[in-house]
Design a protein around this nucleic acid. Structure first.
Length: 576
RNA sequence: CGGGGCGUGGCGCAGACUGGUAGCGCGCGUGCUUUGGGAGCACGAUGCCGGAGGUUCAAAUCCUCUCGCCCCGACCA
C-alpha cells in the first residue's frame, strides 16, 4: 500500500473533545472520526487494526470449536418480552416501532435471538454441545458514552453462546472459552488479568472478566500479591478480621450530638475512632425499605447488598423516606428501633458490642449499642467494600488495587433463558430438559482502545505487531529521485510478497513529516530509504517500541529483514 | 437525570465583561527557495460566529428558548 493514495488524515494537535490517550491517538493518527456521541466511523487504518483483532478472535474461537454465525442487529420486541428483559433492560435498550407499529429494538446483546434460533433446531442431546459466535455491531444507548472507542454506544463485539446437555459439559464449554480468551489477549500483546466478577443483570451463576491493566480503566480490580486470586472490586470478598471477645456492654443510652451527622463528625465529637461506630444505610429495594449496617470506617458494597436481597431495583432511600422510618432528619439513622422492613449487617459487626450508632432522633446518637441485644438483625453477611489493607480471601496475603479496562466477560448462564424461552432437548432417557447455556463477550473495538492505553509514548501509538494496521512503514525520503523510488517499490513488493503488510510513504513531504507520522501511527517497524543509506547500499531500521535503530544491506535484503523482524517480534514477546 | 464547561474558516484557539469593519497559529491553493525529525518567504481562498426568537440605529458580544458536544456524578457489559 502506498501512503500517497491512502487515506490517513493525521492531526498535529490533540482534538478538543478527547480526554484519554487512546481517544486522542485514534483521532490524531487518522484511525477514527466521530459521527455523534459514542458513534464512530473507522477510517482505513482503524479498520485494519480492528480487523486484526477480529481475526485473532476468530481464529481462537474456531480453534476452541465455536462456529461463526451472523445475527441481526434489529430484533423484535416480542422476543425480549418473552425473556422478561423488555421491562428490565431499561433505557440502554434502544426501542422503536416499525411501519406496522411493531415494537423493535437494536440488539445490545443476543441471548434472545440465539436462544430463539436454537430452540427451533435443537431436539436431541446428540446435537450438543454447540457453541455459536458472531462478530457484530452492538448498540447500547449508554447514559454517558465517553472516551472514544472505550465506551461507545455503537461498538463491535464478539459474542458467543454455548449450549450443553449437563453441568459438566457447560463447565467444559466455559473453561474452553476462558482459555481461548487468555490466548486471544496474550496473542494481541496485552497485559491483562482474569478476575472474578459479578454476573450483573444478564444473570447466571459465575463469571470472569478479562481486564486490560491501565491507569485510565473505569474498573477497579483487586488482585492478590501472592496467589492467583483476582476480582472486580464489586465482587471482591472481604475477609473478616477476628472479632474481639465480647465484653460487658452497659445499657444503651442517648447522647446529645447537635448538628453532628457524618461518621467522621461523630467520631471527632465523641472522641472515638470510626471503627467503633455503626454506619446505617437505608435503601429502597423493589419497594421494601431495608437497612444495611457497616462499620463506620467501611464502605457498603451496593452490589453485594443488591445480590443478597435478590432485588432488581435498589436505590439509596430519599430524604423523605429516611425521615419517615427514622423519625429524624438524615444523619441520625441507627439500627435500634428503626422502622424498616429488614436489617442486614456486615459480618464484621458480629460478635462485637458497645457500638455507637444514630439514635433515630434529631441531634442524638446512642452509645453502648449491642446488636445481639438491641436489634433484630436478619443476617450477618459480607456487605462491605474491600479496602486497602485487606487480605486475600484465598491465601491471606495483602491485596493490591489496580485499574482495569474490561475487554472480555465470560458468564455461565445456566438455564435462565432456555427455561423462560422454552429451549429444550431430549436427553439420553428421552426426558425433556432445558439447554444449559453460557455466554462470552469480547469488546473488539474496545480492545483496540485498551491496547492503545497500554502501548503509547510521547510520539504516538506503539502497536503490538499482531494488531498493527501495517507491520512495516517504509519511508522513502527522496520520492522524486527515480532510483530511490524504484528501489522503494522493489522493497515494498518484496515484503508484500513475503506476506508482510507494508505501507510505503511515497508522499512528496519533507523527511520530518514522514518520521512524525510513522511514529504517530505506531507501525512496529520502520524502514528508512534515504540518500545517505542508499549511497552505501543500506536501509535504515527502527524498532518503534524500543526506538533502537540499525541498518540492513540491500544486498540479501530479504534474509537480513527476516532476522530484523524476528528480533522485533522477540522483543515484544519478552518485554518486561 | 443532577452539577460544571464549551459551540467563532478543515483543526486548535482569541475576540464577549465594556455592542460599532471577525482575528491568530496550523492546515489548504499558487509561485520561488528548501529537503534526514511536523521548512522559509510572498500572494491567495475559505465564516449565516450551532439554530430560532427578542432588545438596539447597530448583536459573535446583551436577554429568552432550543440543539449539539465534552467532563464529574448517578448508571452500566
Amino acid at each position: 500500500m502506498r501512503l500517497s493514495t491512502f487515506y490517513a488524515p493525521t492531526l498535529k494537535e490533540d482534538p478538543a473533545d478527547a480526554e484519554v490517550v487512546s481517544h486522542k491517538l485514534l483521532l490524531r493518527a487518522g484511525m477514527i472520526r466521530k459521527l455523534t456521541a459514542g458513534v464512530y466511523t473507522y477510517l482505513p487504518l482503524g479498520l485494519r487494526a480492528l480487523n486484526n483483532v477480529a481475526n485473532v478472535v476468530r481464529e481462537e474461537m474456531n480453534r476452541a470449536g465455536a462456529l461463526e454465525v451472523l445475527m441481526p442487529a434489529v430484533q423484535p420486541g416480542d422476543l425480549w418480552k418473552e425473556s422478561g428483559r423488555w421491562n428490565v433492560y431499561g433505557k440502554e435498550l434502544l426501542r422503536f416501532t416499525d411501519r406496522h407499529d411493531r415494537e423493535c429494538c437494536l440488539g445490545p446483546t443476543h441471548e434472545e435471538v440465539v436462544t430463539d434460533l436454537v430452540r427451533h433446531e435443537i431436539r436431541s442431546y446428540r446435537q450438543l454441545p454447540l457453541n455459536l459466535y458472531q462478530i457484530q455491531t452492538k448498540f447500547r444507548d449508554e447514559i454517558r458514552p465517553r472516551f472514544g472507542l472505550m465506551r461507545g454506544r455503537e461498538f463491535i463485539m464478539k459474542d458467543a453462546y454455548s449450549f450443553d446437555k449437563d453441568e459438566t459439559g457447560a463447565d467444559t464449554s466455559y473453561f474452553a472459552m476462558y482459555d481461548a480468551y487468555a490466548r486471544i489477549f496474550s496473542r494481541l500483546g496485552l497485559r491483562f488479568r482474569a478476575v472474578e466478577a459479578d454476573s450483573g443483570p444478564i444473570g447466571g451463576s459465575f463469571s470472569h472478566e478479562f481486564m486490560v491493566l491501565a491507569a485510565t480503566g473505569e474498573d477497579t480490580i483487586v488482585a492478590c500479591s501472592a496467589c492467583e486470586y483476582g476480582a472486580n472490586l464489586e465482587k471482591a470478598e472481604a475477609v473478616c478480621h477476628v472479632a474481639e471477645a465480647a465484653s460487658f456492654c452497659p445499657p444503651a443510652e442517648a447522647v446529645s450530638t447537635p448538628g453532628v451527622h457524618t461518621v467522621d463528625e461523630v467520631a471527632a465529637f465523641l472522641g472515638v475512632s470510626a471503627d467503633r461506630i455503626i454506619k446505617t444505610l437505608l435503601y429502597v429495594a423493589d419497594g421494601r425499605v431495608v437497612a444495611a449496617l457497616v462499620r463506620g470506617d467501611r464502605e457498603l458494597n451496593e452490589i453485594k447488598l443488591k445480590n443478597v436481597l435478590g432485588a432488581t431495583q435498589m436505590e439509596l432511600a430519599a430524604p423523605e423516606v429516611v425521615t419517615r422510618v427514622t423519625g429524624a432528619p438524615v444523619g441520625f439513622a441507627g439500627p435500634v428501633g428503626l422502622g424498616v422492613d429488614v436489617v442486614y449487617a456486615d459480618k464484621e459487626l458480629f460478635g462485637r458490642s458497645d457500638w455507637i450508632a444514630g439514635a433515630n432522633a434529631a441531634d442524638a446518637h446512642l452509645r453502648h449499642v449491642d446488636l445481639a441485644r438491641d436489634v433484630k438483625v436478619e443476617c450477618y453477611l459480607d456487605l462491605r467494600q474491600v479496602a486497602a489493607g485487606d487480605m486475600c480471601p484465598k491465601c491471606g496475603q495483602p491485596l493490591l488495587f489496580t485499574k482495569g479496562i474490561e475487554v472480555g466477560h465470560v458468564f455461565k448462564l445456566g438455564t435462565k433463558y432456555s427455561t423462560t424461552m422454552g429451549a429444550m432437548f431430549l436427553d439420553e432417557e428421552g426426558k425433556e430438559r432445558p439447554l444449559i447455556m453460557g455466554c462470552y463477550g469480547i469488546g473488539v473495538s474496545r480492545v483496540v482502545a485498551a491496547c492503545l492505553e497500554q502501548n503509547n509514548d510521547e510520539h504516538g501509538i506503539v502497536f503490538p505487531p499482531p494488531m498493527a494496521p501495517f507491520e512495516v512503514a517504509l519511508l522513502n525520503l527522496s520520492p522524486k529521485d527515480e532510483t530511490a523510488m524504484a528501489k522503494a517499490r522493489e522493497l515494498h513488493d518484496l515484503l508484500s510478497g513475503m506476506g508482510i503488510a507494508v505501507l510505503l510513504d511515497d508522499r512528496d513531504e519533507r523527511p520530518g513529516v514522514k518520521f512524525k507520522d510513522a511514529d504517530l501511527m505506531g507501525f512496529p517497524m520502520q524502514l528508512v530509504l534515504g540518500g545517505k543509506g542508499l549511497a552505501r547500499g543500506v536501509v535504515e531500521t527502527k524498532d518503534r517500541r524500543t526506538g533502537e535503530k540499525g541498518e540492513l544491506p540491500l544486498e540479501g535484503f530479504a534474509e537480513a529483514f527476516a532476522i530484523f523482524r524476528q528480533g522485533v517480534l522477540d522483543g515484544w514477546e519478552n518485554r518486561g
